[in-house]
Nucleic acid binder design. Structure first.
Lengths: 250, 250
DNA sequence: AAGTTTAAAACATCTGATGTTTAAAAGTTT
DNA sequence: AAACTTTTAAACATCAGATGTTTTAAACTT
C-alpha cells in the first residue's frame, strides 16, 4: 500500500512557509537575498502581519532565514548551519534515547575507515593540531575532557573531507558529551583516552593506515567499556546500555 | 581559543521557546501533556498572545509540540518524529550539496556491516518482505524504482535494530531519491539493482554474513557507477560528482 | 574630518475584536 | 434506550491598528 500523509490544517502561515521554502530550494531565492518587509510582503500575500510573522519565525527555526531588526534590517535568506541540525538531533535523540551500544556500533563502522583515509591525507600541520589537542587534554585533566575528546574525533573526520561523515560524527560526539556530562569519569578514563589518541596519531604520523584503523577500533571499544563501568553519577545505565535517572538516589 | 556563540537578540518568543524546550528535555513535560491555552499561558508568562503564539509556532517547527484547534484542542507535547529531522536535513544538504561520491562513501562504510548483522538476525518473514520488494520492483519497472530501492535498504537497516543507523540510512536514501529524480535511469540500471538485491537476499537466506557484506559493497559501488553514467537528464554531474543544472539545455 | 544628533525604516510587542474548528453536551427522533 | 441531530463553548486562527525598540544612514555640528 502507499504511504499516507496526515492531512494538515490549511494554515496561512504554513502555506507561506512552504512557498518561501520552495523558492529557496528551487534556487529562486539565494543566500543573502532580502525578502520584502513584513508590511510589504503581508500585503502582497494578502494576509495579516501576524500570519506572515509566524511564517518568518518558522523559517527562522528551520535555519533558512535570519531576521534582523533596525533600519537596514529585514528577513535574509541564510544557509542552514550545522548548529540548527544538531539542535534538532538533540531533540530527536532525547526521545529515541539510543543506547551507548548503538553509538559505539556506528562509531566502529565509521571511524576506523575515517582514519584510514586520514593516513593518506593528513598533513604535518594536522599532526601538530592533534598533538596539541592531546597535550591540552593531559594538562587540563578531566575538566575539558569531553570537549577535547570530541574535538579530536571531529578534527579527524574533517581531514577525511566528507561533509556527511562530518555531520554524523559531530552529532554523535555532541550526544556523547551530553551523556558523559551525567557520568562521572575518573582519572584512569582520562589516561586511557589520551593513550588511545596518542597511539592513533603515531600511526597516522607513520602513514600506517591499517594500524591506525585497528587502533581506532580498539579505542572506541575501550571508551565504551569505560563508560559502561562508570556508575557513580546521578544516572545509571540499564543492561541495554541506556542512560536512566538513578531511582535509588532521591 | 574558546568557541564564541553569536549573541542573539533577547526576543520574548525565544525566551519562551527555551523555557518550554527545557521543560521537555528535562522531563518536566512529557509526551501527550497539554500546555495551558494561549490565553492562560500568555497571562502566566506576562506576555501578549502574539508572542506566545510565535513561540508555539517555533516549538511546532522543532517537532516538539502539536497544536490542535477546537474545543479539546491546545498545545500537546509530541515526540519529535523522523520526518522533522529529514526535512531539516533536506534543507541542510541543499546548501552542502554533497557529491554522489560522499553519499557512496558513507554507504560503503555502513551498509556492508549492516547486512552482516542482518544475516544473524533476519527472520523468514523479513526474507519474504525483501523478496516481495524485489518482485514489486520487477513488476513496476522504473516507475517506483527509487522508492522501492530505498525501501529495500531501509528494511535491512531496520532489521539491524540500531536507531542511529536507521536515521543515517533513511536520510541518505531520501537524499538519493531526490537526486535520482533529476537523473534519468534506464532499464539496465533497474536490472542491475534487482540483480544486486536478489543476490544479497540469497546470501542472507543462507545466513552467509561475509558473502552478503561483500555483495552489498559491490552493489553500492555498482549503483554509484550507474548514477555517474546517467547524463541524459536536465542535470549534469561535475567531475567531483556534484549535481548541477545543465547549462547547455536552456 | 571627526564626532554627534536626528530621522526613518523595519522589526517587536501589545491589545482587542472577529472568525473557524472541534468535541462534548443537549436535544430530538425512532 | 439507542441513534441521530443540533447547539454550545473552548481554543486556536486571523485580522487590524497602535506603540515601542533597534539600527543604520543622513543631517548637523564642532
Amino acid at each position: 500500500m502507499f504511504d499516507i500523509d496526515v492531512v494538515k490544517p490549511n494554515r496561512i502561515s504554513e502555506n507561506i512557509v512552504e512557498q518561501i521554502r520552495g523558492a529557496i530550494l528551487s534556487g529562486e531565492l539565494k543566500i543573502g537575498d532580502r525578502l520584502p518587509s513584513e508590511k510589504d510582503l503581508s500585503a502582497k500575500f494578502g494576509v495579516s502581519k501576524s500570519s506572515l510573522r509566524e511564517a518568518y519565525r518558522v523559517l527562522e527555526a528551520y535555519g533558512l532565514l535570519e531576521i534582523r531588526q533596525g533600519m537596514a534590517g529585514g528577513a535574509f535568506v541564510k544557509e542552514v548551519d550545522i548548529r540548527t541540525i544538531k539542535d534538532g538531533l538533540v531533540n530527536y535523540f532525547f526521545f529515541q534515547n539510543p543506547s551507548i551500544r548503538e553509538y559505539t556500533q556506528v562509531r566502529t563502522f565509521i571511524e576506523p575507515e575515517i582514519v584510514k583515509i586520514c593516513a593518506l591525507k593528513v598533513t604535518e600541520e594536522d599532526i601538530k593540531d592533534l598533538e596539541d589537542n592531546i597535550l591540552a587534554m593531559e594538562a587540563e585533566g578531566e575538566r575539558f575532557l569531553s570537549d577535547l575528546d570530541s574535538a579530536f574525533h571531529k578534527k579527524l573526520v574533517d581531514i577525511a573531507g566528507n561533509n556527511i561523515l562530518s555531520l554524523v560524527v559531530d552529532s554523535i560526539q555532541t550526544a556523547l558529551i551530553n551523556i558523559k556530562r551525567l557520568l562521572h569519569t575518573d582519572d584512569s578514563f582520562l589516561k586511557m583516552v589520551c593513550k588511545g589518541h596518542k597511539d592513533i596519531v603515531a600511526a597516522l604520523s607513520d602513514r600506517d593506515s591499517e594500524k591506525a584503523s585497528t587502533l581506532m577500533l580498539q579505542h572506541i571499544n575501550d571508551v565504551e567499556k569505560g563508560m559502561l563501568e562508570c556508575k557513580n553519577g546521578a544516572m545509571v545505565l540499564t543492561e541495554s546500555g541506556r542512560l536512566m535517572p538513578d531511582q535509588n538516589k532521591k
